[in-house]
Structures are given as C-alpha cells and as structure tokens.
C-alpha cells in the first residue's frame, strides 16, 4: 500500500468522525483497498456529499447505512468512477480516480463487480447471456466450452443451475439479484459493490440475498461494499458499518460499536432495529 500512502493527501481533513470517535483507518488497518478522502459533490447547488472519508479494508464487507436521499448511491457511483467529485478523491488500490481518464477508469472497473438495485440485467439476453457477457467482452478468444464452464460454476454457487435459458422477465426479484451477482463476479473481481441489494424484497428473499453476500465473501474472497437502509441485513452481513448522514460519515466501526454509538442520528436510525422505537 506504499503507493496509496504516497498519493493520498498528506493532511487528512477529518481525523475523527462527527461524534469524536477515532476513524477506523487510524486503528491500524493497513490493507486498505478503497480510500475515500474528503469527497464533495453538489448537484444544481445542492451539496449531497460534504466531505466523506472512509476506508475499506481488503476482504471486508463494509455496509454504508443511510436514509433515502442521504447520498449513498452518489457515493457508490464515485467509488466506481461513474461520477467525478467536485473535490476530494477516491483511491482504489492506491490509484487516484480523480486523476484517471476514462480509459484508465475502464481498467480500474475491471477490478470491480457491481450489483444494481434493479439488477440491471440486459432484457434482450438470457441468464446465460447476461452472466457470460463480461467474459465475451474481455476475453474475446476464450473458447465457448470454457465460458460455459465458468458460467455454470458461478450459477451453481448461487443456486441458479437450470435457469440458464430463462430471460430476466421470467425471474423473481431474488433470482434477478443473484443473476446480477453472478454477472458481477464472473470476472473474479477484487471488489463487489451492492446498491441497495435488499430493497423491495420479502423477508425470505432478503435472507437469501444476505446469505448470497456472505457467500460471495467466503467462497469468492471478495471485498464488498454495500449501500443500504436495511438495518437488519446490514448488521447481518457487515464486518464494518458506516453511517452516512447530512453528507458525511458520522459513525463507522464494528456492528457492535455502531449499535451503541452515541451520535443522536445513529441512535435514532439503528434504534428502530434494536429497540423498536
């Protein structure tokens, strides 16, 4: 991570969170794969992100919690370079995304997989076509037999064997999310991003998706970043939680730390799960 250290701003703008808690990065985490530094973003005069700082360690599952409209999706889009910040930066594996051109961003994105809230499957392609799409695009000379083998392996891990020929319109919400994950991990990325993976799902399917995220971490050894407002799922899958409020990360830490965090918004937000109020 030497390169990461050399490219980061020397003076960190915010060494403690709003509640005065030390940042996770200051607790000696050395294997940081994503580092968000003082990220600001406005849309039409409305400041959505007001200086976000966050570190994601290799192999962890970081869940960014926040109410609707708090800027979670905007933050996620900065992490994968779909949006450019007004100021601040995102470092992926030490590489500054602000200083990377579109061609370079394509290289960075090869290390990512992303599962969208709506799954964002290609309507015109079958499950097999969707999952094999990244392989066909990036390994153009890969034999069909190997593509089929890799796709079958991922579909089997996610319990989708036998559904290869179905089209997205024929799948349930949970299955669509799993196909989305299969497509996201087919290139064996180092990082998988999940955009509101359990929103709008019934409790059983939500459990399936939670298990899928944990399975991806354990079976495929990926680093995961999840944005969600589903507290129950967040506490189930996260190795680290961060709460986004008013354009800033106001709390971050282990799930048990967040459960007992003194910040009033965090108490109110997670209290709905722990105390039912």
């Amino acid at each position: 991570m030497g390169r990461l250290e050399s490219e980061m701003p020397r003076q960190r703008p915010e060494e403690k969170d709003v509640a005065g808690h030390p940042r996770a990065a200051d607790k000696g985490s050395s294997d940081v794969i994503i580092s968000i530094r003082d990220l600001h973003k406005s849309f039409g005069g409305h400041e959505v992100l007001k200086g976000v700082n966050l570190d994601v360690e290799v192999g962890s599952t970081v869940v960014i919690l926040g109410v609707s409209g708090s800027g979670k999706s905007v933050l996620m889009k900065h992490v994968i370079g779909l949006l450019r910040p007004d100021s601040g930066d995102v470092f992926v594996d030490g590489r500054s995304l602000s200083r990377t051109d579109e061609h370079g961003l394509q290289e960075v994105r090869r290390g990512f997989g992303m599962v969208f809230q709506t799954a964002a499957l290609f309507d015109s392609m079958s499950v097999y076509g969707n999952v094999s799409f990244p392989l066909r695009e990036h390994f153009r000379k890969m034999p069909e037999s190997e593509i089929r083998e890799r796709v079958s392996e991922k579909l089997a891990i996610l319990g989708l064997s036998g559904h290869e020929d179905k089209f997205p319109g024929e799948l349930s919400g949970g299955m669509r999310k799993r196909v989305g994950l299969a497509r996201a991990v087919i290139m064996e990325p180092k990082i998988v991003l999940y955009d509101e993976p359990t929103t709008g799902l019934d409790p059983i399917t939500t459990d399936d998706v939670d298990n899928m995220i944990m399975q991806a971490r354990e079976a495929l050894q990926v680093t995961s970043v999840v944005i969600s407002h589903d507290i129950r799922s967040a506490f189930k899958v996260a190795t680290k939680l961060a709460v986004l409020y008013d354009g800033r990360i106001v709390a971050e830490g282990q799930p048990e730390e967040i459960a007992n965090h003194p910040h009033p918004h965090v108490r109110k937000f997670v209290g709905t799960h722990f105390h039912g109020s």
Partner: peptide, 18 residues
C-alpha cells in the same frame, strides 16, 4: 432510453464496456 432508466447503461460502464 429503457436501458438508461433501468441502469443497464451504467451496468455496461461498470463492466468496463464503453
């Protein structure tokens, strides 16, 4: 248009496809 509003175009970008 449908691909745009259903995030399929964003999905292409995230898969490093222009």
């Amino acid at each position: 248009g449908t691909m745009r509003v259903s995030e399929q175009i964003d999905a292409l970008k995230t898969m490093a496809v222009n």
